Lab assay of single mutants.
Amino acid sequence: HTVDVQGVTYHFDNPEEARKFAEEMAKRLGLQVHVKDGRYKVE
């Protein structure tokens, strides 16, 4: 499970961890979480 944050890619084994990380980063950076091709993108 992959999370892209402003061009940096993070990998997680656990989909729940990936989702939480994406939401946390989006909140911290004031950005949105998009799901695209099964990847989380924070932009």
Results as ranks from 00 to 15, higher is better:
His1Ile: 09
His1Tyr: 14
Thr2Arg: 09
Thr2Gln: 14
Val3Thr: 03
Val3Asn: 00
Val3Phe: 01
Val3Glu: 00
Val3Arg: 00
Val3Ala: 04
Asp4His: 06
Asp4Arg: 05
Asp4Val: 06
Val5Asn: 03
Val5Ser: 05
Val5Phe: 05
Val5Gln: 01
Val5Glu: 00
Val5Asp: 01
Gln6Met: 14
Gln6Asn: 09
Gln6Gly: 09
Gln6Lys: 10
Gln6Cys: 07
Gln6Val: 14
Gln6Tyr: 09
Gly7Lys: 05
Gly7Ser: 07
Val8Gly: 06
Val8His: 12
Val8Leu: 12
Val8Ser: 10
Val8Asp: 10
Val8Pro: 01
Thr9Asn: 08
Thr9Asp: 06
Thr9Pro: 09
Tyr10Lys: 04
Tyr10Ala: 04
Tyr10Pro: 00
Tyr10Leu: 05
Tyr10Ser: 05
His11Glu: 13
His11Ser: 11
His11Thr: 13
His11Gly: 08
His11Leu: 13
His11Cys: 07
His11Val: 14
Phe12Val: 02
Phe12His: 03
Phe12Leu: 04
Phe12Tyr: 06
Asp13Arg: 09
Asp13Ala: 11
Asp13Phe: 11
Asp13Leu: 10
Asp13Trp: 10
Asp13Tyr: 09
Asn14Ile: 09
Asn14Tyr: 11
Asn14Ser: 13
Asn14Gln: 12
Asn14Met: 11
Pro15Thr: 12
Pro15Leu: 09
Pro15Ile: 09
Pro15Asp: 15
Pro15Asn: 15
Glu16Phe: 10
Glu16Gly: 10
Glu17Ser: 12
Glu17His: 11
Glu17Asp: 13
Glu17Asn: 11
Glu17Thr: 12
Ala18His: 00
Ala18Met: 03
Ala18Asp: 00
Ala18Ile: 01
Ala18Pro: 02
Ala18Trp: 00
Arg19Asn: 05
Arg19Gln: 09
Arg19Ala: 08
Arg19Thr: 05
Lys20Ile: 13
Lys20Asp: 12
Phe21Ala: 04
Phe21Met: 04
Phe21Glu: 01
Phe21Lys: 03
Phe21Leu: 03
Phe21Ile: 02
Ala22Arg: 00
Ala22Val: 02
Ala22Ile: 01
Ala22Phe: 00
Ala22Asn: 00
Glu23Cys: 07
Glu23Ala: 07
Glu23His: 14
Glu23Thr: 09
Glu24Gly: 09
Glu24Pro: 00
Glu24Ala: 11
Glu24Leu: 12
Glu24Phe: 12
Glu24Trp: 10
Met25Asp: 02
Met25Tyr: 06
Met25Glu: 14
Ala26Phe: 01
Ala26Thr: 02
Ala26Gly: 07
Lys27Ala: 13
Lys27Val: 09
Lys27Cys: 08
Lys27Leu: 12
Arg28Gly: 05
Arg28Ile: 13
Arg28Leu: 14
Arg28Tyr: 09
Leu29Ile: 03
Leu29Ala: 03
Leu29Pro: 02
Leu29Val: 03
Leu29Lys: 03
Gly30Trp: 03
Gly30Leu: 04
Gly30Met: 05
Gly30Ser: 05
Gly30Asp: 05
Gly30Val: 03
Gly30Phe: 05
Gly30Ala: 04
Leu31Thr: 05
Leu31Tyr: 08
Leu31Ala: 10
Leu31Lys: 04
Gln32Arg: 10
Gln32Tyr: 10
Gln32Asn: 08
Val33Phe: 06
Val33Asp: 00
Val33Thr: 03
Val33Leu: 07
Val33Met: 06
Val33Gly: 01
Val33Arg: 00
Val33Asn: 01
Val33Ala: 04
Val33Gln: 01
His34Val: 15
His34Ala: 08
His34Asp: 06
His34Leu: 10
Val35Ile: 13
Val35Cys: 06
Val35Arg: 05
Val35Asn: 05
Val35Glu: 14
Val35Trp: 14
Val35Met: 12
Lys36His: 14
Lys36Pro: 01
Asp37Cys: 07
Asp37Gln: 04
Asp37Lys: 04
Asp37Asn: 08
Asp37Trp: 03
Gly38Ser: 04
Gly38Asn: 07
Arg39Trp: 12
Arg39Leu: 15
Arg39Ile: 15
Tyr40Thr: 03
Tyr40His: 03
Tyr40Ser: 01
Tyr40Gln: 02
Tyr40Cys: 04
Tyr40Met: 03
Tyr40Asp: 04
Tyr40Asn: 02
Lys41Ile: 15
Lys41Thr: 15
Lys41Val: 15
Lys41Pro: 04
Lys41Asp: 08
Lys41Asn: 13
Lys41Trp: 15
Val42Pro: 01
Val42Tyr: 02
Val42Gly: 02
Val42Gln: 01
Glu43Asn: 06
Glu43Trp: 07
Glu43Phe: 08
Glu43Gly: 14
Glu43Cys: 08
Glu43Tyr: 10
